[in-house]
Amino acid sequence: MSTTPAPLPPGLRTRTLTLDDAAAVADLVRAEETVDLGAPEVDVEDIRADWLRPSYDLASSAVGVEDPAAGGRLVAYVDHAGDDVAYAAVDPAHQGRGIGTWLAGWVQQRARERGATRVGSQVPQDSAADRLMAALGYRVRWTAWDLELPEGVTMPAAPLAAGHTLRDADPADPADREAAWTLLEDCFLEWAERPRQPLADFGARVWDREGHQPWNLRLVHDADGVLVGATHVHLAGGGGYVAKVGVRRDRRGQGLAAAMLVDAFALAREHGATRCYLSTDSRTGALGLYEKVGMVVSSTWVNRAIDL
């Protein structure tokens, strides 16, 4: 099933996006998040990191909708980020005009042209985007949650298992970065339905992300020097965000994940974070682990997709 293409509301026009539009797109997303979540989470660095992936072509993957009557201000955008993943946002002041339906039709056609058999996006539950996608026939694939460590709350002490060490990845050592990529992709591909992310694309979102510092990528090794865990944490939206955390399958159950989270959130607070948070979803089975260490659900999301 797919959306029948619908015209844009009169007076609006479309244009190709460039890297210079990242701030305007971030503003659109943040405006939606403020309405749907009460506070924005996305930073312009998140947008630029995705757009700067070597495998990604912005000119053919995204389109903006602008209002000439408002000086050409961007009021919506949609992005076929790759495979079956799309991102979109509509200025809350322009919602309900049919723009979202046009965006859905555009990205479905673009994904179909690239050989995709489905396309979808993750949106806050019960948001305007969620209701529109449901009306257009998008089915729920999974539920996701943002979890936050409340301000002033400290996670229970979680020392590393005996013989293990935790350190920054060495920025001058490509082997450290490749090992982190391999481990984290192995962990995520246990449940994620997508191809393995190329090393350069992974790097664009991690060590090449604007503002990256050595403490953002942390590695756990066992007594034999074997990498068994990795964490990617960075500052975003005024908080410390754990973007990725993974432990090698055969080393789980030793408390390594809890120790890595304690370490990540402590480092984020040392670097000025006023809140600490992460995301998980129903495919991982990790919700209970995070709640057990004191985190609380701050928002609920649904991932919806449509067959093409």
Rank of each mutant, 00 (worst) to 15 (best):
L160I: 04
T18H: 05
A39Q: 10
L308Q: 09
T101M: 07
A129G: 12
L103W: 03
A257Q: 01
A134L: 09
P54A: 09
P214I: 09
V228Q: 12
A286F: 12
L217H: 03
A76F: 02
G225K: 15
Y241E: 14
Y290I: 13
R141D: 04
L219D: 07
Y87N: 13
V63L: 12
V245W: 05
A81G: 04
Y87S: 14
T4D: 08
C276M: 10
S279K: 05
D186C: 14
G288M: 08
C187I: 09
P156E: 06
A31E: 13
A180W: 00
D91I: 04
G152T: 07
A169E: 01
E41R: 02
L227Y: 11
G64W: 01
A179W: 06
A230K: 01
G211C: 12
Q254L: 14
L217W: 03
R97Q: 12
A116Y: 04
Q213K: 12
A111M: 06
L227M: 15
E45T: 10
A257W: 01
R110W: 00
A192P: 00
W191I: 09
V78H: 00
L52P: 02
R13D: 01
V44N: 09
R139P: 09
T117P: 07
L287Q: 14
V245E: 12
R196L: 11
V42R: 12
P195A: 14
E33V: 01
R249C: 09
Y277E: 01
R131H: 14
G255E: 02
S298Y: 12
S299N: 15
S2Y: 03
R269E: 13
D36C: 09
P171Q: 09
T182I: 05
A169I: 02
L147A: 09
D67T: 00
A286V: 11
V220D: 11
D168R: 09
Y56D: 05
L147P: 02
R48G: 11
S127L: 06
L235Q: 13
T117V: 14
P68C: 07
G11Q: 03
E193I: 00
L227N: 05
V153D: 09
S282P: 04
A22T: 00
A257P: 00
T101A: 13
L183M: 11
H234N: 15
G152M: 04
Q108C: 02
L149N: 07
G253Y: 10
S60V: 11
A49I: 00
V228F: 08
P174K: 04
Q197W: 02
M1H: 04
V29F: 03
A204M: 02
R112N: 06
A161Y: 03
A305Y: 14
V297L: 15
L74I: 00
A264C: 10
G285V: 13
L52C: 12
S299Y: 13
